[in-house]
């Protein structure tokens, strides 16, 4: 059911772990729904010089975390903010429809970590252009919503 690329990133996930004294951290997801991602960023001169993750979740969640951290490394914060869930899914050569929310979670994780950095810097937070509703939180359902 998974592409070769997903399996490859699941078996050999890139950037697993934590960054000591990270400049930005984003934790998204909900254990009730079976997935939590924690993204750590090291930022120098507005550029993401290192990105790491820790993830509790399925194969797609782990592969999405791995790919998302790969995609944002070396990018400016503006460029990284534009890395969409679709870009993560495409880079993984597709995800099954029921697993698309894993790529959404990865995008949200990166965004949350970037805004964590901006908050610490006293900068205004960036707003989600297309607020995804992963369904985590308010209505206590795990089903993805359009």
């Amino acid at each position: 059911m998974y592409s070769e690329k997903v399996m490859e990133h699941f078996r050999n996930p890139r950037n697993v772990g934590e960054i000591e004294a990270p400049d930005g951290v984003g934790e998204v997801g909900n254990p009730v729904c079976g997935d939590i991602m924690k993204i750590f960023l090291k930022i120098e001169n507005n550029v993401i010089v290192d990105a790491k993750f820790k993830t509790f979740g399925c194969g797609a969640a782990i592969a999405s975390s791995s790919m998302a951290t790969e995609l944002v490394r070396g990018k400016t914060l503006e460029e990284a903010w534009e890395v969409s869930n679709k870009a993560v899914a495409e880079a993984l050569e597709g995800l099954p429809p029921i697993k698309m929310h894993c790529s959404v979670l990865a995008e949200e994780g990166i965004h949350t970590a970037i805004n964590d950095y901006r908050k610490k810097q006293g900068l205004p937070l960036w707003e989600e252009k297309n607020p995804h509703s992963h369904g985590h939180g308010e209505d206590h359902t795990c089903e993805p919503q359009e």
Partner: peptide, 8 residues
């Protein structure tokens, strides 16, 4: 577990 934020 080593890659799970919950475990940590």
């Amino acid at each position: 577990r080593n890659m799970s934020p919950l475990f940590q």
